[in-house]
Simulated assay, not measured.
Amino acid sequence: MTANKMTMQKHQKGIALIMALIMLLVITILGVSAVKMSTLDTQVAGNSIYSALVFQGAESALGKVMSESDLSNVDTAASTRTAVINVPDDYFNPAETVSAGATLNSRATVAFDGVLDSPVLNNVANSSEFQYQVFRVVAESRLTSSSAKDTHTDGRAVQIPKQ
């Protein structure tokens, strides 16, 4: 070896190793943050799906209870007038299995709210020989194995002769 090469080797302090370790640290930090962001995105997507499922479940339960072809739950509430009627759970059975054993459970209540003598039509009081019983229907849907739930409310007026 020449004297010039020997002096160059003595002046090197291992900067290449330090730079490689710094670059490795930066790449590791980027990789870990990418994995955490991916996990968070997956959780957000899952929660969005759960939210849509319970929304549709509550809407479906409300539609089933409010169906024109099946007013038995409203009729039951009409006969008691002061009670809140819990729609039997078997009315919504079988519970819908969503995935991985999770099920969508729905329930509903029908409550008598009062009697209207003359409902307002087009902002004008309507005098007629009928009264209207008003009911509030509340439907709730829950997804097992999660905290996802949704509640929907609707009303129903049933025409009856004036007393």
Rank of each mutant, 00 (worst) to 15 (best):
G31R: 10
V115N: 04
S79F: 07
Q43L: 14
S118F: 01
L40F: 10
Q133F: 03
V26M: 14
I27D: 02
V26Q: 07
T39G: 10
S147H: 10
A139C: 13
S145D: 15
A77F: 02
I49Q: 14
S60P: 05
N123G: 02
D113K: 11
A139W: 06
S118Q: 05
A95W: 03
F130W: 11
Q131I: 01
S72D: 03
Q133L: 06
N123P: 07
V32Y: 12
E96N: 12
S79G: 15
V54E: 06
N122T: 13
E129L: 10
Q131G: 02
S145N: 14
D154V: 04
Q131M: 07
P119K: 06
V120E: 08
V134H: 02
V74W: 01
I85F: 02
T103M: 04
D70N: 09
N105K: 11
P119Y: 05
F55P: 01
Q43P: 06
I49V: 14
S99V: 06
G57W: 07
V138M: 02
L121A: 15
L71P: 04
L121I: 13
L71Q: 09
M37S: 13
K149V: 09
N73P: 08
E140V: 14
V138P: 05
Q133W: 00
F130I: 03
T144H: 04
V35G: 09
M37W: 10
Q56T: 10
D117G: 15
I49L: 14
M23L: 15
Y132L: 00
V35T: 14
S141Q: 07
S99Q: 08
A34H: 15
K149I: 09
T109L: 02
V84R: 00
D154K: 06
A77L: 02
G155M: 07
A111G: 03
S67L: 06
G101Y: 01
E129D: 14
A157T: 02
Q131E: 04
A148G: 01
L40C: 07
N105M: 08
N105Y: 06
A148M: 04
V35H: 12
A108Y: 08
L121V: 15
P119H: 05
I29A: 11
D113P: 08
V54N: 00
S147Y: 09
T153L: 03
G57S: 11
A125H: 06
P88M: 13
R142A: 10
A52M: 12
V26H: 07
S79E: 12
K64A: 12
Q131V: 05
G114W: 04
L53Y: 00
V110R: 01
I49R: 15
V32A: 14
S99T: 07
P94L: 08
A102P: 02
L62P: 07
L25P: 00
V115W: 01
V54A: 05
L24A: 02
T28V: 11
I49E: 11
